[in-house]
Amino acid sequence: MVKAIYLDINLCCGCGACVVACMDQNDIFPEKGQPAYRRIYTMEEGQFPNTSFLYVSAACLHCADSPCIMGCPTGAITKDRQTKAVIVNGDLCIGCHSCALACPFGVPRYDLEEKMQKCDLCSERVEAGLQPACVRVCPTGALQFKSINKVLGEKEFKFVGNIVSGVHKVTNRR
């Protein structure tokens, strides 16, 4: 059963716990120039005084038909057959930034050695039967790790992200 990380956009409060957990899990030190895999975006909607804030915690969506895989000139980016996670082989990455121009969601970032870095769907944890680090710490339950089929089958989906197809839909947003 293939699972993916989903975000319920109505529940995300932008606290950043997921970002910190992700850095901890992946030994990311921003001060050493290592890019974070997960980011919080804030978006203001409407015009004063009728404004609203929207927080979105986002990382790689592990698209079903990943443009970064097609754009990569070396074969460094592949899709894991079992978990369907899009993974990067740093040994093959040449730092050409082709994937940055391919990704519709601005995900690829590069470390000081010019190797592309991004979320690998917490492969290590998931293989050990655990939840991805970001999902585990999310205090509001906005981030969830669920079976793709189950999510697609849910009638009132109010989450962001159909991670399988890389298409975000927000329905049920006041």
Partner: peptide
């Protein structure tokens, strides 16, 4: 998609 939309607007 919302993330895309947000990044573009930004």
């Amino acid at each position: 998609p919302i993330v895309q939309n947000m990044l573009i607007k930004k």
